[in-house]
C-alpha cells in the first residue's frame, strides 16, 4: 500500500517536473525543474531496493551534473526567454505521440521471461551496496576501469574546452580573422 502511494505520488511529480523542463521557455526554470525531477527519480531507486543507485543518482545528477549546468549557465544569457521558431507543431506532436504509443504497446505486451535466469541473484544476507560492489569488482572490473578513464578524459576535455585562453577571447579573434579572409577572397 505504501509502495503504491509512493509510486503514484513520485510518478506524478516526476512527470510534472519533466514536462515543465521540456515545455518551459526560460532556461533557469527548465534547469531547476530538471534538478527536482532528478531527486524525485532517486525515490524510484529506493523503492526498487537499489539504495546505492539512488544515492549515486542524488550525488551525481543533482550534485555534479546540475552544478555543472548551473556554472555553465554563467556563460549564457539565462534571463531572457528562449526564442524558437517551430515551423510545424502538428507534425512534431503527431510524431512524438505515435512514438509514445508504440513504446507503451511494446512495453505492455507480455514479456517472455520464462527463460531468463538471474546471473547475479540478489541475496538477502548482504546489503545492496555490498552486493553491487562484489559484482562490480569481479565481473565488471574492466568496464569499471574503462569508465574511470572515460571520466578522466571527459574532465580534461571539459577543462580544456571551457577554459582555453579565457582571458583573451579567442573566439572574437577567430571571427575577425574569418571576416578578413572572406573580405580578402571577395
Amino acid at each position: 500500500m505504501v509502495e503504491a502511494v509512493a509510486f503514484y505520488l513520485f510518478a506524478a511529480l516526476t512527470i510534472a517536473m519533466f514536462a515543465i523542463t521540456v515545455m518551459s521557455k526560460n532556461v533557469l526554470y527548465s534547469m531547476s525543474s530538471l534538478a527536482a525531477g532528478m531527486i524525485f527519480i532517486s525515490a524510484f531507486f529506493f523503492l526498487l531496493d537499489a539504495d546505492f543507485l539512488g544515492v549515486v543518482q542524488i550525488i551525481v545528477y543533482s550534485g555534479a551534473v546540475m552544478a555543472l549546468y548551473a556554472f555553465g549557465m554563467m556563460f549564457f544569457d539565462a534571463t531572457k526567454d528562449v526564442k524558437e521558431k517551430n515551423p510545424s507543431k502538428k507534425i512534431v506532436f503527431f510524431l512524438s505521440g505515435m512514438i509514445a504509443l508504440l513504446l507503451v504497446i511494446i512495453l505492455l505486451s507480455p514479456i517472455i521471461s520464462e527463460k531468463v535466469k538471474a546471473l547475479y541473484p540478489m541475496s538477502e544476507e548482504v546489503g545492496n551496496a555490498e552486493a553491487v560492489g562484489v559484482v562490480l569488482f569481479t565481473k565488471y572490473l574492466v568496464p569499471f576501469e574503462v569508465a574511470a578513464i572515460m571520466l578522466l578524459v571527459a574532465m580534461i576535455a571539459g577543462i580544456i574546452l571551457a577554459s582555453k585562453r579565457m582571458d583573451e577571447s579567442i573566439t572574437l579573434k577567430i571571427d575577425q580573422e574569418i571576416e578578413k579572409e572572406q573580405k580578402g577572397e571577395l
Binding site: Q57, M150, M155, A157
Partner: peptide, 15 residues
C-alpha cells in the same frame, strides 16, 4: 555505467 556516460557527456558537451 549509464550515469557515468551521462556525466562525461555533460562535461564535454557543455565545454
Amino acid at each position: 555505467f549509464i550515469v557515468a556516460i551521462a556525466a562525461s557527456e555533460v562535461a564535454v558537451g557543455l565545454g
